[in-house]
Design a protein around this nucleic acid. Structure first.
Lengths: 330, 330
DNA sequence: CTACGTTACGCAAACGGTTGCCGCAAGGAA
DNA sequence: TTCCTTGCGGCAACCGTTTGCGTAACGTAG
């Protein structure tokens, strides 16, 4: 079918091993031979069979990426960053969208395990005990999730959240809503704690709603609850919910900004395109993705003796036009 | 390191071949033996090594997907659909984001070729001659791009475009702008032709702008050009441009809808979340992705003797609130 | 009881590279 | 000239599975 090492060996009169070395381990062979082999290989259109290569060498030049939902706009930037970084290091990305269906995760991961050099898992919803099982599939690194004994890149919500609440108090808001994300979400727990602490610290009344799924529709539903309450500002678990919220408020004639302030989390690319543009807590997804790749490849090299790295990334508030001073009559 | 067939063979006192058959070709062995083997394999936590499996069988259970830009919201639904469909057929997706950098494509594709069962390529920008090279890497299917002699799923813009122009004329618009996409984009050529024909057919004056990159920022830039012209409605090459356009028009106090009508193309998930919600020509990306997977796997089975399938998918207009009757004074 | 057909399993050769080890030849030193 | 070193390249094992073929054991029929 296609050109193999053996074909080149025949064409050059050398043995397969020499050809192999000429192509991948240049120092072990005479420069003249090397060049001759390379030229012939080139001419014959030789492309090494990665599968065969992996089998012996153990290296796959592949990294596995597991995400819950590609369509959620928070993830594409992460995926892109992972893929870019991997590509820069000569790796390709094997992707699995588990579609918010955590039970698939372990299965998928196990199947992937042998053909990738490492796993990057973005898994906000999976229960801890499942993750522990996953964690055995080293090298592995978790993004936005802390798993004991495993490497991870986590996003520290507290700073951004503090900025958000500070921003709202500066605008005169004293009663703020928080729209909870999914009940089992690790992120939501983090964010919930962060908002509670920040509000307590600033003497702001906190009203919690939800849980809501990270979907536009959930935000739409949330809108009416929020509107019926007496909060003057609301922080949503993520931008999706915030955007749905805004859309519905717009529809009901409530002006986001002047009438009620809205803050999202993630700072997904859509924040700047919504109307009004959405004030959002920037979560450095791209950076997290890139770091995760670095860590996992490091792990792959150093055969897992080192102690797992835990990288923390900070969040910060990006102010746009969905937040305004509280209305004088409230 | 991890459990192999040989380990199970040892544990059961059988040979590796029998174990292999017990697990993957159930009819060839005694049911009693089969069950015993399966139980032990299960207990020992055996996971077949896909790499080794691929090497002999030739099957990889992988399909390659090449997209220009994951972060462009048009693609995630396609990726998701591809991944979902692939997953349903027991395949995993190898993804390459070529970052709008067409020269990488062939290289990446060649490297992928041996380890995937087929390639799905979404490549709106790559020049034809390059695609011809790509097309040799069968099985391969192109999405939203026609390549002679190769399978493809193409999206027929004309119907949706006809509906769009019809819709605008019904609202009284007689002078319509079209914001061109990237100069070398195949899609843009299609859309440009479609809008020209549709306008000609309905006696509408067409004013073309651009080319523009499919980015928010390009739309922002387009806004001022459009505003300075005398068109009362504008159709953008894609939603990204349309959204940027709307954002800037909003900012300048031009009311999208009442003052100027805007139509996007793609009907990306954001169309419904913009303000005002964006009338857009729905492009069935998910369906295209799913169909592409079907075709490519078909091709992989039937060793490429059949003549390449070309599937056409229709577009249709989704009316939302960014289009309104033309202002009486225009 | 022999002969033949099944069934159930094992042997061994792939698949296409990689890599440890060894032999051999050439060059330098003694 | 001889011995040792060094560098180059070949041999063969191996990675973990699949699969064609062969064969032992067993059952059935003649």
């Amino acid at each position: 079918m296609s050109v193999t090492l053996a074909d080149i060996a025949r064409a050059t009169g050398l043995s397969a091993s020499t050809v192999s070395r000429a192509l991948s381990d240049p120092d072990k062979v005479n420069p003249r031979t090397r060049d001759r082999v390379r030229k012939i290989a080139q001419d014959m259109g030789y492309v090494p069979n990665q599968v065969a290569r992996s089998l012996t060498s153990g290296r796959n030049d592949l990294i596995g990426l597991i995400v819950p939902d590609i369509a959620n706009p928070f993830f594409p930037p992460i995926i892109k960053a992972v893929q870019a970084r991997a590509s820069a290091k000569g790796k390709t990305v094997l992707i699995a969208d588990v579609d918010e269906h955590p039970s698939d995760e372990i299965q998928r991961a196990r199947v992937m395990r042998k053909r990738v050099d490492g796993l990057v898992v973005v898994s906000p919803r999976t229960p801890d005990d499942r993750l522990d099982q996953l964690a055995e599939l080293r090298p592995i690194v978790f993004v936005n999730r802390e798993v004991k004994g495993a490497a991870s890149v986590i996003i520290e919500d507290s700073e951004g959240m503090r900025e958000a609440v500070e921003h709202l108090t500066a605008l005169g808001h004293r009663r703020v809503g928080y729209l909870n994300g999914p009940r089992r979400s690790w992120s939501n727990t983090q964010r919930q704690n962060a908002v509670r602490e920040a509000c307590a610290a600033h003497g702001v009344d906190l009203v919690e709603f939800g849980p809501f799924e990270p979907q536009i529709q959930a935000g739409v539903r949330a809108a009416d609850l929020v509107h019926a309450s007496d909060v003057t500002a609301v922080i949503a678990y993520d931008d999706m919910i915030a955007l749905g919220l805004m859309a519905r408020l717009n529809e009901r004639g409530v002006r986001v900004g002047p009438d009620i302030s809205v803050i999202g989390i993630d700072d997904s690319p859509m924040s700047g395109m919504a109307y009004p543009t959405l004030t959002s807590i920037h979560v450095p997804g791209s950076e997290a993705g890139a770091r995760a790749v670095d860590i996992v490849l490091d792990l792959a090299d150093t055969a897992g003796d080192a102690e797992p790295a835990v990288v923390q990334l900070e969040t910060r508030l990006i102010v746009r036009s969905s937040t305004s001073p509280v209305r004088p009559d409230r």
